[in-house]
Amino acid sequence: MSDFGFHLAFWSLAAMTLGGASMIIISRNLIHAVIWLVMSMLGIAGLYLTLSADFIAVVQVLIYVGAISVLMLFAIMLTPRAERDNSQNIKTGGPAALVVLLVMISTLWVAIDTDWGAVREAALTDQARLIGESLIKHYILPFEIGAVLLTAALVGAIALARQDDEDAAVHAASLQAELDGEGSVDPVNVVDPPIAAEAPDSEAAS
C-alpha cells in the first residue's frame, strides 16, 4: 500500500469515525444515535483494515455492528417511550464533558509521547490462526476464565430479566391515574397524533 492510498484511506476513515462519534452526542433521537454509532464502528473497522488487521476488522463488524448495536436497539425499543429522549444528556453534560476532555488529552499525550515501533515489513497473512493458537496455547487460562465469566453473565441476565412486580405495579398505577383523568380528553387531539407526534416509535417489542 503506497503512502497516498494509505493516507486517503486513513483520513476518510478517521473523519467517518469522529464524525459519527460527534453525531452520537448531537443527535436527540436515541435511535439516530445508535445508527451514528454504527457508522463510527464501521470507521474503526476500516482503520483496523488499514493496519492490516483484517481479523480484528471483521470481528469488529461482526460483533459491534452486527450484534452490539442490535442489542442497543432492542434495549431502546424495550424502554418506555418517555425515556427515549437523548436531550437531557446534553443539558447535564457539562461536568461529563470536562472529564471526557481530560481523558482525551491524557490519551493523546500518551499516544504522541510513545515511540511506536512501526511495522515496516509485510502484513501477517494468517492472523486468525495465530490468534487462535495463542488463545488456546499460551493464554488458555484467561480464555477459560473469560468463558466462565460470560456464562455467568448469561445466567445472570436471565435471572435479572425476570419481571420485577413492584415496578410494574407503580407503572400500572400511574397509567390508571392517567386513564381515570381522561374523561375530559379532547378526542380531536387523541385521534392520530399519539403516533405521529411521538415520531416513529410505535410501541411493541416482540
Binding site: 410494574a168 405495579a169 407503572h171 397509567l175 390508571q176
Partner: peptide, 13 residues
C-alpha cells in the same frame, strides 16, 4: 394496565 398488574410488563399494541 392489565398486563402490568398481571405481571407481564410489556405494552400492548
Amino acid at each position: 394496565i392489565e398486563a402490568l398488574t398481571t405481571g407481564d410488563g410489556s405494552e400492548p399494541v
